[in-house]
Amino acid sequence: MKLEILELKDRKAKFVLSEVTPAFANSLRRAMISDVPKMAIDYVDIYDNTSVLFDEMLSLRLGLIPLKTNADMYRFPAECECKGAGCALCQVSLTLSAEGPCVVHSRDLKSSDPETVPVDQNIPIVELKTGQKVVLTAVARLGNGKEHAKFQPVCASGYKNVPVISIGEKCDMCKMCIDACPRGVFKADKGKLVVTDLYKCSLCKHCIEACDTGAITLDTDNEAFIFTVETDGSYTAHDIIDSAMKSLKGRADQLSEIMSAF
């Protein structure tokens, strides 16, 4: 297995994973989407809401706000000592109270845990006109992406095969493919056609269509994958990949443990 990192930022990662099977690449993608636990608002007590939004819409908006998550500090309510009743080990409460005229933002949510706070400060929750009021307590808990998309820590996470572009000897340097490629993959260098950035290729086959001599062939490498992971800020991209792999490993360990009993 080989890993080449193209980009690693707080909220975005791009890397090439090679010498693995498609099944492995897909299991990593699925683990990132649905197995990494994340905190999100799941229960809302509304004491007063005279805003233009219905209670349901208000709660839905609150649920979608990403919260900074430290999964080591919290447990799933079902696995907690309190048996799901709700305690400091499995939930965080956030309060919001505002009176118009104003726009209520995610930064106005006051959390009981200074570490579990909204990641983005400027998300407008609701606009209040004069005399309108919102008072509520929201309860955030751990969950995973299988349950609801709000518990999904990644937003655009996926992969594509690494393309294989081969230029045959039939190439007569007509340079039609250079203009035809929407991603600018080809370049003429010292009288020869060369591929500048292979990872940019989207496999659109415009170059094959443009080539009269049929010198270009396109294929995909089934053992190499270009991954893109974008997070909503609840974790860093690095942490998500790390915990996705840990969850995969944990499941494999579980299976071998069960098997050892036979």
Partner: peptide, 20 residues
């Protein structure tokens, strides 16, 4: 009100709404 996230990919887009 602007939706909190993108309907398709889930990116939080409302963060930049007011500046936009």
């Amino acid at each position: 009100m602007i939706p909190v996230r993108c309907f398709t990919c889930g990116k939080v887009i409302s963060e930049v709404w007011e500046e936009y």
